[in-house]
Write a protein that binds this DNA or RNA. Structure first.
Lengths: 192, 192
DNA sequence: CCTATTTCTTAACTTAAGTGAACGAGTTAG
DNA sequence: CTAACTCGTTCACTTAAGTTAAGAAATAGG
């Protein structure tokens, strides 16, 4: 489990054994049951999440309907919007599966960042990378149809289609569950 | 013009007069004519842009069609994906209007960041903010219809609708120009 | 000033997503 | 064990976006 974390960090900076021990001694790992809510809309929070194992999702409740917009799986990091803009959250975060997460809080991170420039550097590079990636994903979404988005997902994150309920996938693809069902039927038709 | 830049920076860190002079002495401001291409698909580049005045856009050419996915106006900063992942660009960047930009390159930034921790800090906070904002925008896009997206744009960036050609706005909203025309006609109908 | 081009709109038709409802399979709770 | 739910699928119908084409309006270039 620790390896997942240090493999991730090593993509950006290198840590000494002492530094690794210091991080582990903070005791930030948490095991959570499927369905556990990590953040609720309207709530304020300073917590960021790093997924070591499992899957968590962001969802909104709009007109009484759940709209899932993002999934985070192994090696994904997530700092909720409410932590950045210090306002109540617009969305919920919950566990899609039993998961093991690293949960840190922004005060602690600020302290570490100011003490260890190495860590600040990692955070900058990571955010820049994630931002560039998010923009490319957004662009791909804008320029493609639901069907193309589904096929793209099938290519890029085939695991998601297996581990996540269809109705959550549907809103992730920007459509209704019935449309996803129909779309899948249409694709099967085409293949034969 | 310099004020636009320093107003922006002051939201994150404070600079001494010497530091401001040092930045100005780098002579990074560029005036560009409407239509000027800043980056082409397939090309590699290390340049980042900060818009002091005017408007630039990102567009893809997919099946021979231009698809505009983003607009950057006054006080917006843009580091293209190809600068981050050091691969050829997937998209074009060009000026929608006559514009004044600050153009920096990543080698220079890396040097400045390592010399001035203050600057590194600003970059981290800025990227984190932009990432959080990009995610919220993406979420809003996923969870709304073209009509809602248009009305949302009317609220959040009314200037864009004035200064940008409709067919570029259309792909920005994820639809075809004809659909945007029809959508606008439909909305006018509703009002009366 | 006029032509060529680009941009925007309109229309008729096609295709696919939204809506509301119903059904069966699988799961959960009493 | 059964009743209540959740989940995925299907269907009929509505609505809106895609497509193709044509023409009007605005813009740019010679």
């Amino acid at each position: 489990m620790e390896n997942t974390l240090f493999d991730f960090i090593s993509k950006y900076i290198s840590l000494t054994e002492e530094e690794k021990d210091a991080i582990l001694s903070l005791d930030l790992f948490r095991s959570l049951k499927k369905g556990t809510t990590l953040l609720e809309a309207g709530q304020k929070s300073k917590n960021s999440y790093f997924v070591l194992k499992g899957c968590i999702r962001i969802y909104y409740i709009i007109d009484g309907e759940e709209k899932t917009t993002a999934f985070y799986t192994e090696m994904d990091a997530l700092t909720p919007h409410c932590v950045i803009n210090k306002a109540p959250s617009e969305y919920f975060i919950s566990c899609v599966e039993d998961s093991i997460l690293l949960i840190s809080n922004s005060d602690m991170e600020a302290e570490i960042n100011s003490k260890f420039p190495k860590f600040e550097l990692m955070c900058r590079i990571l955010s820049e990378e994630l931002l560039a990636k998010e923009r490319v994903d957004f662009d791909a979404f804008k320029t493609s149809s639901p069907e193309q988005r589904y096929m793209n997902l099938l290519q890029k994150r085939p695991d998601l289609i297996q581990r996540v309920p269809q109705h959550q996938l549907a809103s992730f693809l920007g459509i209704k569950p019935q449309s996803l069902s129909r779309l899948r039927a249409r694709l099967l038709e085409k293949k034969s």
